[in-house]
Design a protein around this nucleic acid. Structure first.
Lengths: 165, 165
DNA sequence: TATTGTTATACTCTATAACTATA
DNA sequence: TATAGTTATAGAGTATAACAATA
C-alpha cells in the first residue's frame, strides 16, 4: 500500500499497521464465531444476552439494556426471539409489576453449555498457528489494551454502533 | 462468567477467552477508526475503496468488486458517494467502453494523506498502554494468525458479511 | 410524575435480481 | 451470448419517539 521509502525496519514502521490487523483479525474472529453459533440457532447478540442473563438471573429488561449499552426496544426484540425459541423466560416481578424478570430455561442452559464447546473449538482453530506461549502472551496483551480502553469484560462493542461503517 | 472451578492457571484456561478478546478489541479498533475518519468525511468502507484504487489506478468497478469480495451494485453506491465528494473520478475506458476506469483525484490523494496521519494517531492512542516490544510482538502474532486464516493483506472482513450478527 | 416494557416508524447497510449498453 | 455497470427492491439491524401499564 504505502510504499515504505526506507527498507529498514524501525519501531514506527513495523507497528504502523497493527491497529488495522487488530480490526481485521478481530472481524474474522467475530464472523467465524457467528458462523459457528448459527448452528446452535443463535446470533452473537443472542449469546451476549444469554451470558448476562445467566450470570444475573431475575434481571429486568431495563437492567439488561443498561448492562449492554443498548436501547430498551432492542432488548424487547432480542428477548422475544429467545423466548420464542424457548431459551429464556419472562416472568412479571411480584414486587414491581412493571418489571420482567429474565431467566434461562433448561434449553437455554443447554445452549450455554454447547456454546462453551463451540467457543473452545473456535478459539483452537482460529489460533492454531500459534504456540501456547504466543496464545498466552496475546491474551495478556489484549487484556491490557482492553483495560486501558475501558472495555467492559464481557460486553462486545458490536452491541452499540458508535458510528457508520 | 463461567466460574472457573480450579484456581490453577493452566494453558487451556488462560487461553480460553482470547478469541473473544480479539473480537472485542478488534471491534473497538474498528469503531474508533470509524469515528476518526468520519472527521474526514469518509467511512471505513470508503477508505477500503480508496486504498485499492490508489494502488491500482484505472481499475474497473468489476475489478474493484472482485478485489473486495462484494457485489457490483455495492461498488456503484460507494463510488457514487466518493465521486460526489470529488475524491474519485470515473472515466469510460477507450479500449472497452463498458468499463469505468477509477482514479483518485487530487482531493482523493489529500484524503489518503490525511488518513495516514489519522491512522497513526489512532494506533498510537489505541495501543498506548503497550511497550514498543509488545506492539511489535502483537503485530507479528496477528500477522501470523491473519496469514494462517488466508486473510488478504488489505481487505477488511467487514466488507463481506458472512452471517448475521 | 417517573419508569418498564412495548409498538411504530424510519433510516442505514447489504444482497439479489432485473435491466442497459457495450462487446 | 456474455460482461460492465446500473437500478429497483427487499431484508436485516438499529435507533428514536410515542404509548400503555404500573409505581
Amino acid at each position: 500500500m504505502e510504499p515504505d521509502p526506507s527498507s529498514n525496519v524501525d519501531v514506527r514502521a513495523s507497528s504502523r499497521r497493527v491497529a488495522f490487523l487488530l480490526s481485521q483479525v478481530g472481524g474474522l474472529a467475530a464472523s467465524k464465531f457467528a458462523e459457528r453459533v448459527s448452528d446452535l440457532g443463535v446470533t452473537p447478540s443472542d449469546v451476549g444476552l444469554l451470558r448476562v442473563i445467566a450470570t444475573t438471573p431475575g434481571l429486568s429488561q431495563r437492567g439488561l439494556a443498561d448492562a449492554l449499552g443498548v436501547g430498551p426496544s432492542r432488548v424487547v426484540a432480542l428477548v422475544d426471539g429467545l423466548e420464542d425459541r424457548g431459551l429464556v423466560e419472562r416472568t412479571r416481578s411480584e414486587t414491581d409489576r412493571r418489571n420482567h424478570e429474565l431467566r434461562l430455561t433448561d434449553a437455554g442452559r443447554s445452549v450455554m453449555t454447547a456454546m462453551r464447546t463451540v467457543g473452545a473449538a473456535h478459539e483452537r482453530d482460529l489460533l492454531a498457528a500459534l504456540t501456547d506461549e504466543e496464545r498466552i502472551f496475546l491474551g495478556e496483551i489484549l487484556a491490557k489494551v482492553a483495560e486501558a480502553n475501558q472495555l467492559l469484560p464481557d460486553v462486545h462493542p458490536g452491541f452499540h454502533r458508535t458510528t457508520k461503517r
